[in-house]
Design a protein around this nucleic acid. Structure first.
Length: 920
RNA sequence: GCCUUGGUGGUGGAAUUGGUAGACACGAGGGACUUAAAAUCCCUUGAUCAUUACGAUCGUGCGGGUUCAAGUCCCGCCCGAGGUACCA
């Protein structure tokens, strides 16, 4: 019987489905293991060979763990809300739900062909009302919570209301948009509307006017991580800054815990580092500067309080609220002009002009609290609204940005940290000594900073504090295809919908565009209001809403009463292994951790981190092939002859190139303009050039997994994707090697059949050599699986099969465990052989073979003999021979003596079973 | 600029704690079988020199160092990839 992968794969895929082989239930008798792949967005293009890389790796691990006795949860679903489906809907009028359904069907079909062990009964789809009911529910919990800094966790907003009624803001320490201060009487005297507005200052999901990344082309705002290099991540459209009322999640309240939590995670250093930078913790001081002839104060955050004696000007961001109040009449015209200009600049313009200095003087002066000096207050773009207080004290001598500004506007530069040379550039060290600095002169930077903090505290104008770069996440999108907010407005104030009204279904609209008045698409829905006539929120939630807590829903996907039951959450705990791309480092992987920590605070989940171990699979790059057309002709010249001509490289479809040799007939058919192409060949072939690029349709280098499955089978594809190299590394996809893996698959199959195609496995006792091959392989596979080194496991299989073929081994005691070993990688062929071996259960439930070290014990050890570290020859000695004896034997050996050349060695190093080194 | 990675044959890569560098594949060359092709099998394949049998020298981005021994550890560079970028 030949290796007929089409028949084998079809048979077992059907059997697995029918018998629900991969269905999993909670089972207290077994330890659990949770393996999760990052949620895919089902795009219209379908899967390319890069997508399954991570899925194959996690599938191998899931199957391996199951064979090692774990109860493995390995689910899959779809992150189905999102921009592409909606953009398509705008263009065609087709409802995004339809497109999404089609795309999901296509994904499913492609995934099914690869033979994954997903439990599809647990599938979740974010766009399904049964699912987004719980996204909305979590949002309501966020809305109804605030962050208590004292107990360092989220608490019900009702507790805050009670406390305000009793003691106002006295003793309050809560995360907030801006610090407020009022008494119980003042609170109690507030109207309902005023109270609700006040509470928004504390809620973990709140609405506020904020500067946002507005993308006019997409008609929506974007989160910081959705803007890349000043343009939208999806589509690459320009992004502007705009002041808008938006729903926001108070992620910043969790900054410290998000940072600390990283220490407990088994994630790569690079991802942890990216998150640390994104959170951006910095210690410093908050200091209030008086403003001359003005009631207000200019508040600043600085990490260098030690340099306060060197302040020579102050800078506010162009968005600063105080600008109008402090600008002098003489400066007003100029300030207005600058502020207008700066505020309306796009992100792209801002980023490209980073080096250009711009700014304007307000005419106002602040007072240095230590020197009582008048300090001019400027406005400049280099100070950002979103960080700290939006104002700084500028110390040009010791900050390069302030330095550039001072030089440009001719402001004084005063040295306050000794030891540097400030004539050319700022001296930014943190290990200097304070000079010209009043009472801190002579102190180190560290001591000086501490002393200033003490002093400002005493003076009541500041305190030491910590600032984070991490900002609150903007949570509204002015789009149709997302979760509706469970929010309605009464008297202009937002209220949460009662939980029993969930899910709030996405309404039908006539068009997926904003209204004529610029409102989001949901405003088109005729009855988008409560029974009492209160209007619902018109924006929808962003992509990360549905993906932030999805791993919890997999634990209990059909529960309509609870988000996840305590019992099931207790059983599955958290994701043990999470596999996905590193591009989610600053988006999903932060939001998801935030979401989980919040649910943890509420006592809904038992772990405060969602993903214990994370593996980032590398990208699969495309390998583009080129042909070379001689300029102004229709002649194409082969790679190694092209330098003799002036040529234009042209990308050619990789599917008509084999091992870099062009299929000339297929090329002529490929596009009409090549019908009559002529070729200059080398050795009778047309050889193409190649380059590594991103895999994309426009570069004609896309490899579709379906085609490869069709040609070689899923098992070969799975093995080959793993064989390509370490899972975390990015690597080019090159089908040249897949033939070798396919050959291996057939060779493996042939171990079980004789020349006439009859199953030939017999029950004879294996030889010691045969056992040795098996146990060497068991050990290698087990160790490599545990460290996610799947490429070396594939090599180990190849070696074992080569060796067993050599021995013509057909013994059940060897070949049966081999089936189990390989089954995680090539489940279909393993299943077929497993049943041919007489089993009626499924190979995924077989027990992973037990490694017996005794089979690997050697009586002899082969020693490489080296002279001064250079290996010259090999000698075999009994494994238990003492080093002393080996030394004597080796020195007496005639071959060795030839190299000794009559000299006496200075030293002989013998590492048992490893190496002999003779030092001369 | 800063942070994180990585650099090994023509190609993908292996070498897990410092112990025979190049496993396993691809590609290439040669051969067997075959009317032929496919499939399969065998040999060679890091470079240079030598080839009569033994071989010899060099070699893991570059320059140093530690060590009996370095792809692996340390110091200083060079190059690539990813992240981040006025974050006070």
């Amino acid at each position: 019987m030949d290796y007929n992968f089409r028949e084998v794969e079809k048979r077992w895929q059907e059997a697995w489905k029918e018998q629900k082989v991969y269905h999993v239930e909670e089972d207290e008798s077994k330890p659990k293991f949770y393996v999760l792949d990052m949620f895919p967005y089902p795009s219209g293009a379908g899967l390319h060979v890069g997508h399954p890389l991570g899925y194959i790796a996690s599938d191998i691990y899931a199957r391996f763990k199951r064979q090692k006795g774990f109860n493995v949860l390995h689910p899959m679903g779809y992150d189905a809300f999102g921009l592409p489906a909606e953009q398509y809907a705008i263009q065609t009028g087709q409802h995004p739900a339809i497109t999404t359904r089609q795309n999901i069907a296509r994904y499913r079909e492609q995934l099914d062909k690869i033979g994954f062990s997903f439990d599809w009964d647990r599938q979740v789809i974010t766009a399904d009302p049964k699912y987004y009911k719980w996204t909305q529910w979590v949002f309501i919990q966020l809305f109804n919570s605030y962050y208590c800094n004292k107990c360092d966790k989220a608490r019900p907003i009702s507790e805050l209301v009670e406390s305000f009624a009793k003691q106002g803001t006295q003793g309050l320490d809560a995360a907030c948009t801006k610090p407020l201060s009022f008494t119980a009487d003042e609170w109690n005297a507030m109207s309902e509307k005023e109270q609700q507005t006040t509470l928004l200052n504390y809620r973990l999901a709140y609405i506020a006017d904020t500067w946002v990344n507005w993308c006019p082309k997409l008609g929506t705002v974007l989160a910081n991580d959705e803007v890349v290099n000043g343009v939208s991540e999806r589509g690459g459209y320009p992004v502007e800054r705009k002041l808008m009322k938006q729903w926001i999640l108070r992620v910043s309240a969790y900054a410290e815990r998000l940072l600390k939590g990283l220490e407990t995670l088994e994630w790569s250093d690079s991802i942890k580092e990216i998150q640390r930078n994104w959170i951006g913790r910095s210690e410093g001081a908050f200091i209030r500067f008086k403003i001359e002839n003005n009631e207000n104060t200019l508040d600043i955050f600085t990490t260098r309080p030690d340099t306060i004696f060197g302040v020579s000007f102050m800078v506010m961001c162009p968005e600063h609220a105080l600008i109008e109040q402090i600008t002098t009449p003489e400066q007003k015209a100029e300030v207005d002009k600058y502020v207008y200009w700066a505020r309306n600049r796009s992100e792209t313009e801002r980023q490209t002009d980073v080096k250009k200095v711009s700014g304007v003087f307000t005419g106002a002066y602040a007072i240095n609290p230590f020197t009582n000096e008048r300090i001019p207050i400027w406005i400049a773009e280099y100070v950002l609204a979103g960080y700290g207080t939006g104002g700084i004290m500028a110390v040009p001598a010791h900050d390069s940005r302030d330095y550039a500004f001072a030089k440009h506007f001719n402001l004084p530069i005063r040295e306050v940290i000794g030891g540097g040379d400030i004539s050319k550039e700022a001296f930014e060290t943190k290990d200097g000594t304070c000079v010209n600095s009043g009472f801190i002169t002579g102190m180190s930077v560290k001591e000086g900073g501490k002393a200033i903090i003490e002093k400002v505290k005493e003076m009541g104008i500041g305190y030491g504090t910590v600032n984070y770069r991490l900002r609150d996440a903007i949570f509204s999108r002015q789009r149709y295809w997302g979760e509706p907010f469970p929010i309605y407005y009464k008297d202009g104030v937002p209220y949460a919908l009662p939980e029993d009204k969930l899910p709030l279904l996405l309404p039908e609209v006539d068009k997926y565009l904003p209204t004529e008045t610029g409102e989001p698409p949901l405003a088109r829905a005729a009855s988008w209001k409560t029974e009492d006539g209160c209007p619902y929120e018109c924006s929808t939630m962003p992509g990360f809403a549905g993906s932030s807590g999805y791993y919890l829903r997999y634990m209990d996907p059909h529960n309509d009463e609870e988000f996840v039951s305590q019992k099931k959450n207790q059983y599955w705990q958290q994701v043990d292994l999470y596999v996905g791309g590193s591009e989610h480092a600053t988006g999903h992987l932060i939001y998801s951790r935030f979401w989980n920590k919040f649910l943890f605070d509420l006592g809904l989940v038992c772990k405060d981190e969602p993903y214990a171990k994370l593996i980032n699979q590398g990208m699969i790059q495309g390998r583009t092939n080129f042909v070379y057309r001689i300029v102004n002709t229709n002649q194409f010249v082969s790679l190694n002859l092209k330098d003799q001509y002036e040529v234009t490289p042209i990308r050619v479809d990789v599917n008509i190139v084999h091992n870099d040799v062009l299929d000339i007939e297929a090329f002529k058919q490929w596009r009409p303009e090549f019908n009559h192409a002529e070729f200059i060949l080398e050795d009778g072939k047309y050889v193409c050039g190649w380059e590594i690029e991103k895999m994309s349709k426009s570069k004609y280098n896309v490899q579709n997994p379906d085609d490869l499955v069709e040609k070689y089978g899923a098992d070969t594809l799975r093995l080959y994707e793993m064989f390509l190299g370490p899972i975390e590394l990015s690597k080019p996809w090159d089908t040249n090697g897949i033939e070798g893996v396919f050959r291996f698959m057939r060779k493996f199959w042939r171990l079980y059949f004789d020349a006439n195609g009859n199953f030939r496995v017999m029950d004879d006792e294996p030889t010691r050599d045969e056992y040795k091959i098996l146990h060497k392989t068991i050990k290698k596979v087990e160790d490599d699986n545990e460290r996610f080194s799947f490429n070396t496991t594939v090599s180990a299989f190849m070696i074992a099969v080569n060796e067993l073929s050599e021995l013509k081994c057909a013994k059940r005691k060897i070949l049966e465990p081999m089936v189990v070993l390989i089954s995680a990688y090539a489940p279909h062929v393993a299943e077929e052989l497993w049943h041919l071996l007489g089993h009626s259960d499924f190979v995924v439930d077989a027990t992973f073979p037990q490694f017996e070290a005794s089979y690997l014990v050697e009586n002899e050890a082969k020693y490489p003999v080296s002279f001064n570290g250079k290996t010259r020859l090999q000698k075999v000695f009994p494994a238990n021979m003492a080093p002393k004896e080996i030394e004597a034997a080796v020195l007496a050996d005639p071959d060795v003596q030839k190299y000794l050349d009559g000299k006496t060695p200075k030293k002989v190093i013998i590492v048992p079973k490893k190496i002999i080194n003779i030092v001369m």
